[in-house]
């Protein structure tokens, strides 16, 4: 019975709506689909979405690993609060995050006004999009890397040290390679989330067509113009690229887990 409930609920809520999207985009016909998907504004929007999500995920890998390391290895005042704060982006509605980040990084904002005299502009540029996506993606990296880091056997480090490795060598040659699968997973999750993110980005992006307009926003714009074929085509392209990338990352992950890998 449980399986029956699960399946019917799944089919009703997930499968029928999603197959509607697939059916709609295939009904467009290949020629129309291609014209819509290769429209310059669409291509730019997709490039911006995937590019900024990639950059943000990279930044999150660097700082997320440092943050996870600090939380697992060191003791300092307020650590528990910081640990809990990492999940803030999961809990804070994206629209709230969006207006808060814009307030901070706008040219007249708290941080933006410090950077403006230096000629650095964050809000209303693609850099602003990256900042919003860094916020949104951070917990994905920290929360995938942290538990694996906690599992690391101290003996591995001791062995490396006994064999004459200095601390930097131990970390870069022994510890980090073992964390690679977890880091990749975190990267993939942050990246996937960033590509589709809407709420936190639209306030800070400035939304200039061809320059700082993300793909999800273009879908919304096309919907408001009642241009359903165009909206469907952009959505289909986004889904196809995302799934392809996740597939590739899964394959790299399986490979690196065989090669290095702690735990699972």
């Amino acid at each position: 019975m449980a399986l029956g409930v699960t399946l019917s609920w799944l089919i009703l809520i997930i499968l029928i709506p999603l197959s509607g999207l697939a059916w709609r985009s295939s009904a467009l016909g290949w020629g129309t689909f291609w014209t819509l998907a290769t429209d310059q504004r669409t291509v730019n929007a997709l490039r911006i979405s995937f590019g900024t999500a990639f950059a943000a995920a990279l930044i999150n890998v660097v700082f997320g690993v440092i943050l996870a390391w600090v939380l697992v290895r060191y003791r300092f005042p307020g650590k528990r609060i910081i640990d809990a704060m990492v999940d803030l982006p999961f809990a804070l509605p994206t629209a709230v995050a969006g207006i808060a980040l814009t307030t901070l990084y706008a040219p007249n904002g708290w941080i933006g006004s410090l950077l403006a005299p230096l000629g650095i502009k964050i809000a209303f540029t693609p850099i602003g999009i990256v900042f919003a996506l860094v916020f949104v993606g951070l917990p994905f990296v920290v929360r995938t890397v942290q538990p694996i880091m906690e599992e690391i056997d101290k003996e591995v480090e001791e062995a490396a040290a006994t064999l004459g490795a200095n601390r930097f060598q131990t970390i870069s040659r022994v510890l980090l390679p073992g964390l690679a699968p977890a880091v990749l997973t975190g990267f993939a999750l942050a990246f996937a989330r960033g590509v589709g993110e809407y709420g936190s980005v639209i306030f800070i992006a400035g939304n200039l067509p061809y320059i700082s307009e993300i793909a999800p926003l273009l879908i919304v714009i096309r919907l408001e113009e009642f241009n359903y074929p165009a909206a469907t085509a952009i959505a289909a392209v986004m889904l196809i690229i995302s799934f392809a990338m996740l597939l590739i990352i899964n394959m790299i992950q399986a490979w690196s887990r065989r090669r290095y890998g702690y735990g699972s």
Partner: peptide, 13 residues
């Protein structure tokens, strides 16, 4: 792994 906008779009379609 689906964009929230696409999640809304499927119901519009």
């Amino acid at each position: 792994s689906v964009s929230p906008v696409i999640s809304g779009l499927v119901f519009v379609l």
